[in-house]
Design a protein around this nucleic acid. Structure first.
Lengths: 345, 345
DNA sequence: CGAGCGACGTTATACGTAACACTTCTCTCT
DNA sequence: AGAGAGAAGTGTTACGTATAACGTCGCTCG
C-alpha cells in the first residue's frame, strides 16, 4: 500500500496518495473529491471511483498534515478549573453543542484543581487550536496561552479582562447581593463565608459583595471566612471549622453547591439541624442542590448559557469580528436549607 | 520576522527558521537546541544564543508540523460517557496523572450521554492521537477508532473485548454479588433495579449478576427494572415509577450513586423513609454517597486506580509490548441507606 | 475555419519540523 | 608528519495535505 511498507510491518495508514494510486487519479483529485470541492472540476463518475477507493482502503486524512497546510483546525480548547462540580460539566456541554453546530470540535482541559497555576496545556498536547474558552482560572495560568497569540474568551472573569478578546459573565455580584439580602432579611446577623480556594475573579467578587452587603446592616457581621477546595469533603472540613469557632455563625454562605452540601453534612455531624439551628446556602443550582436533604437555597447560575454564549463569542472573534462583553442574569432560588435563625439561647 | 509578513498583517507566528535567522545559525541547530539534543553537537555558548533568540521572539513550536514529522504526538484521548457522575472525573484525573508522569498529554472527550453512538471524535478535532483510553462506551461508538488502527484500551468493558489492545475492569460481578447478598441477607425479597440506560458491558453485567443472585433465593424476586439516564433527575423519575408500581419493592438497587441519590429523593417525595420503609444502594462511592442523608450503601469502585491502570496499559501498548487484562477488586461499603425491610403490613 | 471556452485533470509547491548524511575544522596520538 | 577521531554545524529531505497555476481536449460560434 505504501511504497515504504516492509513485510512484517504493521500496515501503514493509507495516505491520499495511496487512494489516488488505487483510483488511477492524481493526489490532487483525491483531495478535491474528498473535500467536496469537485463540483465542475471532476466528473461524477471519477468522483465516485475516488470515494470507493478511499472507502476500500479505510482512508482517513492525516489531521496533522491538514492542520499544517491550512494553519487552522476548527478546534477550540475549553479550560475548566475542575470537574468535581457538575456546574462545569454543564457549561462544557453548552459550549460543545454550539461548537458542533458550527462545525467546530472541542477539546476539554480540566486544570488540576487547587494545584496553583495550571500546567501548559500545549506542553504535550498534540492538539493545535484555533482558540480558547477558559473559565474561572487564575490569570497566570493562561498567560502562556494569550502570549501565544491565541484568541481567548474568558468565562466568569473580570468584565474588562485585558488579554481576553471577550468575556462572558453571570451577574455574580447581583447573585451574591440577592443571597445576602435573603439571609439578612431572615434575621441572620452572624454570617460565615465558606469560600472556594480557587483564585479567580468570580470568587473574589462574591467575597467582596458579601462583605459589602453585610456591612450595610448595622449589627450584622461576617464572623468568619474559611477557604476550601471545591469538593464536598472540602466544604465539610471548612464548615466544621466555622461551626466550632466562636462566635458561632447562624448561616453558612458557600461559594458553590458542592461546598454547601459538605456544610450541611458538617452541621449534621455536629448535631445541628438545618435550617432550624444553622442555615446553609450555595451557588450553582446543579442537580446536587436538590439531591440533598433539605434542598439547598442557592443562586442559579446559567451554566449552559455561559458555555453557549462563550463559544458564540469565541466563534465571532475567530471570524475577525469584535465580540461584546456579555453579562447573564442570575436568580436566587430559596429552598429548605435557609430559614430564620434560632432565638438566642 | 516572516518574509511573507505584509504590512498591516497580524504578526505571523515565528517559526524555527525565524529563530535561526535571529541567532545566526541554521534551522537544524535551532531544532537540536530546543529539543535538548545538542549535547556534544552544539557549543554551550551557541545553544544559549539560540535559546535567547527563541525567548525574544516568543517562539512556540508548531505542533501540527511536529506531529506530521514525527508521526506521533505523545497525546492520548480519554473517552468518558458523561461528566454528570463524579466517578468519571476521578477516573480521568488518575489517567491524566499517569500520562503526565510519562511525558504524555491527555485530551478528554465526554461523549454526549445517552445520545446513542458518539460522534466521531476525529471528525473535527485538530488533535492527532497516539492512543485511546475509553470507558463504558457502546462498541459501535468506538468502531471508527479501532478501525483507524489506533491502539485502544477499554475501561469497564468486557474482559476479552476484541478490538481492544487491553482491558481494565473492576470486578463488577463480584461487587454486585456482594451488594445483592447484603440486601438479601437483610431480608429483602422484592427487589427493583434502577439501571443506567447507557448500553455497556459493565451495566449489562450488573443486571446479569443481580438477576442470578436473586434467583438463588427461593422467595426473592426482581420485581422491576427501570432504566434511567445517569443523573439525579433520572434516578428520581425511575425510582418513582418503581415505587408506585405493584408489588412495591422494598429495596432499590441502583447502578450508580447518582441514581441512588435520585432514588432517595423519590422515596422522600412519596413519604417513604429510608431505610426503614425502603432501602437504597448504589455504585461508585463518590463524594455524593456521603453527601446525602442517609449516607449511601454502595459498592466502592476504584475510579482513580482504573484511570491509572488503564493509562499504564495504554502506554505499555504504545511501547509495542503486550498489556495484560487487569481486574481490580471492589468493596461493599454498607452505610445508612440500607436496613431490614419493614414488616409486612 | 480558427479562436475561444468550458470541462476535466495534473503538476508543482508550501506549510514547519526533525533528523540523516555530510563537511569542515581542531586536536591528539603514533 | 600524517592519520584518525571528535566537535560543531549545515544542507537537504520527507512527513501528508490543499490549492494555485497550468495543460489538454472537444465543441461551439462568429
Amino acid at each position: 500500500m505504501n511504497s515504504s511498507a516492509r513485510p512484517g510491518d504493521v500496515p501503514a495508514r493509507p495516505t491520499s496518495r495511496d487512494v489516488a494510486e488505487r483510483a488511477g487519479v492524481s493526489q490532487a483529485t483525491v483531495s478535491l473529491v474528498l473535500r467536496e470541492r469537485w463540483q465542475g472540476r471532476v466528473s461524477p463518475a471519477r468522483a465516485e471511483t475516488v470515494r470507493a477507493a478511499a472507502r476500500e482502503l479505510g482512508y482517513r486524512p492525516n489531521l496533522a498534515a491538514r492542520s499544517l497546510r491550512l494553519g487552522r483546525t476548527r478546534t477550540a480548547l475549553v479550560v475548566v478549573p475542575a470537574l468535581s462540580s457538575e456546574f462545569f460539566a454543564v457549561m462544557y456541554a453548552g459550549a460543545a453543542r454550539v461548537a458542533a453546530d458550527h462545525g467546530f470540535g472541542v477539546v476539554l482541559y480540566p486544570s488540576p484543581e487547587g494545584i496553583g497555576p495550571a500546567p501548559d496545556p500545549f506542553a504535550h498536547s498534540g492538539a493545535t487550536l484555533d482558540g480558547v474558552l477558559a473559565s474561572s482560572m487564575a490569570a497566570p495560568a493562561l498567560r502562556s496561552l494569550s502570549e501565544g497569540g491565541l484568541p481567548l474568551v474568558m468565562l466568569d472573569s473580570e468584565p474588562r479582562d485585558p488579554g481576553a478578546a471577550a468575556t462572558v459573565n453571570p451577574d455574580i455580584g447581583d447573585g451574591m447581593r440577592q443571597l445576602a439580602r435573603h439571609v439578612l432579611g431572615l434575621g441572620h446577623r452572624r454570617i460565615a463565608h465558606i469560600a472556594a480556594e480557587v483564585d479567580s475573579w468570580t470568587f473574589r467578587e462574591r467575597a467582596r459583595e458579601l462583605t459589602r452587603e453585610v456591612a450595610r446592616v448595622p449589627d450584622a457581621s461576617l464572623v468568619r471566612t474559611e477557604r476550601a477546595p471545591l469538593t464536598v469533603r472540602g466544604g465539610l472540613a471548612a464548615a466544621e471549622r466555622a461551626l466550632t469557632a466562636l462566635p458561632r455563625p447562624t448561616v453558612l454562605v458557600c461559594d458553590d453547591d458542592v461546598l454547601a452540601a459538605g456544610a450541611c453534612k458538617a452541621a449534621r455531624r455536629l448535631g445541628l439541624r438545618v435550617p432550624t439551628e444553622v442555615s446553609v446556602a450555595g451557588f450553582g443550582d446543579t442537580d446536587l442542590a436538590t439531591a440533598v436533604e433539605p434542598e439547598l437555597t442557592t443562586v442559579r447560575l446559567p451554566a449552559a448559557a455561559m458555555g453557549e454564549e462563550g463559544m458564540h463569542a469565541l466563534l465571532t472573534v475567530l471570524r475577525g469580528e469584535p465580540a461584546p462583553g456579555t453579562v447573564l442574569p442570575v436568580a436566587l432560588v430559596p429552598r429548605g436549607s435557609t430559614g430564620p435563625p434560632a432565638a438566642e439561647g
